[in-house]
């Protein structure tokens, strides 16, 4: 497990999430980056996985609660008095 002298595609896949999240030890990062520099397919997997995560975090993918849903929620919780939003 500790012999990362020659990172393989397999190992890259195992560490992919941790690498993207910045949770991988620097030493392992370097090994992985060495592999990335030589392996086009792994680079593509990394780039497209990162991009996928970026996309789901855009505001378009995170719409706010529709106003009518909020209204019904507040009524159900007997919070009618607090329906008017205070300024942010």
């Amino acid at each position: 497990m500790t012999e990362h002298t020659h990172t393989t595609c397999e190992e890259l896949l195992d560490s992919l999430s941790a690498y993207i999240d910045g949770a991988l030890a620097p030493e392992l990062c370097r090994e992985l980056e060495k592999h990335l520099a030589e392996c086009n397919n792994c680079r593509v997997v990394l780039n497209t996985t990162k991009r996928t995560i970026d996309l789901v975090q855009t505001p378009l993918e995170k719409p706010d609660l529709p106003e009518d849903v909020r209204e019904r929620l507040f009524k159900r919780l007997n919070l009618d008095d607090y329906l008017t939003r205070k300024s942010k």
Partner: peptide, 8 residues
Amino acid sequence: PARFVDWS
């Protein structure tokens, strides 16, 4: 992974 198209 089976597809290696870089659309990023």
